[in-house]
Computed example of a mutant assay.
Amino acid sequence: MRYDLVIFDNDGVLVDSEPISNALLAAYLTELGHPTSYEDSLRDYMGAAMHRVHDLVLERTGRRLPEDFDDVFHRRVFAAFERELRPVPGAVEMLEKLTADGVPYCVASSGSHERIRVGHRTTGLDRWFDDARIFSSQDVGRGKPAPDLFLHAAASMGVAPERCAVVEDSPLGVRAAVAAGMDVYGFTAMTPAERLAQATALFADMSRLPDLLA
């Protein structure tokens, strides 16, 4: 293995949450008078922390979202997760292989700690990620595309940035990994390859990742 640490994004990489959360986000923004399609949501918000939603709506419309926006949105998302959320195809097999090979890994997500844990618990991925392996944009001042979250995860795990590989499916996440000085593997199952063109390598099948990293 040429890396000392593999850092995973969570939504869309480990748990198949992007279709669920972006459909709900588009519907909620539209309900509040900010017409947003599913495709708009994927383009503008996929891989981003919640403050980006607030910032873009304010910038575009001059209107602030309601104070309880995040709470209402997360209640809807968590309820949908309980009903519908599954691991990304191939993710369990990939984690089994990395574990068997003794490769250290962690997750660094734009989502809140609660969102990460709800997703892992619902899909059974919690067996692979204890608290010491979970990092959220809540832990740093700036979310992706700033490098802060990935640098924080690497430092916490005791690994130099240049010895890390990041696995991402969003353009914001790829930009953050590049800014952190890390190799980044772009997962194209849901994201057009050209939107992840800055990545070190691209792949569409999660079960292929251990061979790519090796």
Rank of each mutant, 00 (worst) to 15 (best):
D126S: 14
L212Y: 00
C164W: 04
G141K: 08
Q198G: 08
P35Q: 04
L209W: 10
G12A: 08
R142S: 13
K97R: 14
A100M: 10
A189F: 04
M190E: 14
M50N: 11
P210W: 04
S156K: 14
D148W: 06
E168R: 12
P35C: 07
G119R: 13
T99L: 12
A176Y: 09
A204H: 13
E168F: 03
P66N: 06
L196T: 02
S170I: 03
P104N: 01
S17R: 09
D55I: 01
T191A: 06
H152W: 10
P147E: 09
E84Q: 13
R64P: 00
M50V: 15
R117T: 08
L172I: 09
T99D: 05
A179F: 03
A48F: 09
D40A: 08
D16T: 01
A153W: 02
V57K: 11
R121P: 00
G12S: 12
S136E: 05
D71T: 11
T191S: 10
A180C: 07
A26P: 12
I7T: 00
G141T: 11
A179V: 05
H54C: 09
G90I: 03
A204I: 00
D11W: 05
L95E: 03
Q198K: 11
R127F: 00
M1D: 05
L149A: 08
D169Y: 02
A155L: 10
L151A: 08
V167E: 03
A100S: 15
D4R: 15
F203Q: 07
H113W: 06
A49N: 15
V77H: 01
